[in-house]
C-alpha cells in the first residue's frame, strides 16, 4: 500500500513536467473533454433526474407534519442536492465511468507496448497521456456537476408536483429560500478535488499495469474502487474543513 502511494507520487512528478508539443497537447485535452466529459452527459443527467426525484419524494414523506411548512421540501432538496448528491454521488458515478475508461485505455496501451513506443520516441509518455486527462476532468467535471444540480432539481420538481401533488409554487419557493452562495463554491471545490483523484488514481492503475488482458481488468477494478475510497475520504475531510 505504502509502495503504491510512493509510486503514485513519483508518477505525478513525471506527469507535471513539460508535455512537449503544446499545440498537440491542447488538442489532446479537447479530445479528452469529449471522451471523458461530453460522453458522460447522458449518464449524469439520467442519474441526477431520478435521484433528485427520489430525494424529493423521501423528503415529502418524512417531513409530512403540520408544523413544517411545505416549501421546506424544496429547500431541503436543494441543500441535499447541491451539497452532497451532485458532487459526491455523481463523483462516485463518474469514478465508475471515467475511472474504468481511463484505466482500461492506459492499461491496454501499456500491454500492447504503445506507451513504450511513445517513450522510445523520446517523449514523456506520462505527461503526454495523463496530464490531458487530469486537465479535462478538472475543467469539465464542474460543468457536469452544474448540469447534475439542474437536472436533479428538475427531477425533484417533477416528482414533487407530478407524484406528490405539491404545488409548483411551493417547491420553487423552497428552492429559492435562504440562499447561500457558498454552497455552490463548496460543491465546485469538492468536484475539483474529486476530479483530480478520479483522473490521477485511474491513470496510475492503468499506466502501471504489468501483464496482459486479465491485469488490465484488475487494474480497472482497482482504479474504480480506490478512486471511490479517495472520494469518500476526501469528502469527509472537506466537509469538516469547509462547512
Amino acid at each position: 500500500m505504502i509502495k503504491a502511494i510512493g509510486e503514485y507520487f513519483l508518477l505525478l512528478q513525471r506527469v507535471f513536467q513539460s508535455p512537449g508539443n503544446r499545440k498537440l497537447f491542447w488538442k489532446q485535452v479537447l479530445d479528452e473533454i469529449y471522451h471523458l466529459g461530453m460522453d458522460s452527459i447522458p449518464l449524469v443527467s439520467l442519474v441526477s433526474v431520478f435521484v433528485g426525484a427520489a430525494i424529493t419524494i423521501q423528503l415529502q414523506i418524512n417531513m409530512d407534519s403540520p408544523w413544517i411548512p411545505l416549501y421546506s421540501v424544496g429547500f431541503a432538496a436543494r441543500k441535499a442536492i447541491v451539497l452532497e448528491l451532485a458532487p459526491t454521488i455523481i463523483g462516485l458515478v463518474l469514478a465508475g465511468k471515467i475511472g474504468s475508461h481511463i484505466a482500461s485505455q492506459l492499461g491496454t496501451m501499456r500491454v500492447t507496448e504503445q506507451i513504450d513506443a511513445i517513450e522510445v520516441m523520446g517523449m514523456n509518455s506520462a505527461s503526454y497521456l495523463i496530464l490531458p486527462k487530469i486537465i479535462a476532468c478538472m475543467l469539465f467535471n464542474p460543468i457536469l456537476i452544474m448540469l447534475s444540480i439542474i437536472t436533479a432539481l428538475a427531477g425533484g420538481w417533477a416528482a414533487g408536483v407530478g407524484i406528490m401533488h405539491m404545488s409548483s409554487f411551493q417547491f420553487i419557493y423552497g428552492l429559492q429560500s435562504f440562499p447561500h452562495n457558498f454552497d455552490l463554491v463548496y460543491a465546485i471545490a469538492k468536484t475539483l478535488v474529486f476530479a483530480f483523484f478520479i483522473s490521477s488514481i485511474s491513470s496510475f492503475y492503468g499506466y502501471t499495469v504489468k501483464g496482459g488482458a486479465l491485469e488490465v481488468g484488475k487494474a480497472s477494478t482497482k482504479a474504480v474502487v480506490n478512486s471511490s475510497i479517495a472520494i469518500i475520504l476526501s469528502n469527509l475531510v472537506m466537509t469538516q474543513l469547509l462547512m
Binding site: 507496448e113 504503445q114 520516441m121 517523449m123
Partner: peptide, 26 residues
C-alpha cells in the same frame, strides 16, 4: 531511434496515416 515492436504498437485511436505522422507531429 526508430523501433518496430513485436505487436506493432500502433496507436488504436489513430488511423494509419496519423500513426505514421505521429513522430513528425511531435
Amino acid at each position: 531511434i526508430g523501433m518496430v515492436f513485436q505487436g506493432g504498437a500502433l496507436f488504436d485511436s489513430l488511423p494509419v496515416l496519423e500513426n505514421v505522422m505521429f513522430p513528425l507531429d511531435m
